[in-house]
Design a protein around this nucleic acid. Structure first.
Lengths: 116, 116
DNA sequence: TCCATATTTCGAGTATTCTCGAATTATGGA
DNA sequence: TCCATAATTCGAGAATACTCGAAATATGGA
């Protein structure tokens, strides 16, 4: 992942409404959610949401497809993967020992609440 | 990790100079770097850097300690860890199968360039 | 105490971001 | 074709963020 991509992704997630949208889309999974449904769920005006969705799209964190009159957005899991990898690569660049605790946690070593 | 904390961390990393600072500090490891050294390394004015460092500090991604006349900053690895966990918890909330590919990658399954 | 160094704080100017109402584009159905 | 729905684009106003020079604070040494 290039620096600009990571930068765009971090900036996209560093805004409350967009973080909410992204988390909602992650929960929605592969089928995604239409812009209108997101707007209803989060109580954000359609046009405001639209600009946030375009920021998320440009960052690569979400993608859109048209379905009839609706435009359905879904989170790009590969993009999250890349972003995490980018952070971790940073974290252990040249100093693997710094990274070890992270990995033991991610692998469920300490009662992780994720994917066990 | 609470939402506000994650938000602050993402926002902090979504700015080029701050991302540069953070990566530099991660590379520097536990001994950290003085503000002046960071300023020199990245060619950023001292006062501008100072405001960026305060944003990073408030986000919890870095911490400061005084050493004589210098103030030495270092990255908080536990904060990265929390941020990654936050993203991953999102990613597999209720849908573990979405998270599986991430873990196989993180565990070095596909030629990862990190910590092998 | 006095001075130099290291860093932060202050204040202002510019740029960017966020939000909104109104207008526009695209689609599907009568 | 005409209308209703779904979403985006446009333009403007308010709020934030970024950067800088100048001034202030804190430390160590002569």
């Amino acid at each position: 992942m290039e620096k600009d991509t990571a930068l765009a992704a971090f900036a996209a997630l560093g805004q409350e409404t967009r973080l909410d949208v992204f988390r909602l889309l992650v929960k929605a999974g592969q089928e995604g959610m239409a812009a209108g449904a997101i707007s209803d769920a989060l109580d954000v005006r359609a046009n405001t949401l639209s600009t946030h969705l375009s920021v998320l799209s440009r960052s690569g964190l979400v993608h859109a497809r048209r379905d009839g009159r609706s435009i359905v957005y879904h989170a790009d899991m590969a993009a999250i993967q890349s972003l995490v990898t980018y952070l971790l690569n940073d974290c252990c660049g040249g100093k693997p020992e710094l990274c070890a605790p992270l990995f033991s946690m991610l692998q469920g070593g300490s009662g992780s609440s994720c994917c066990d």
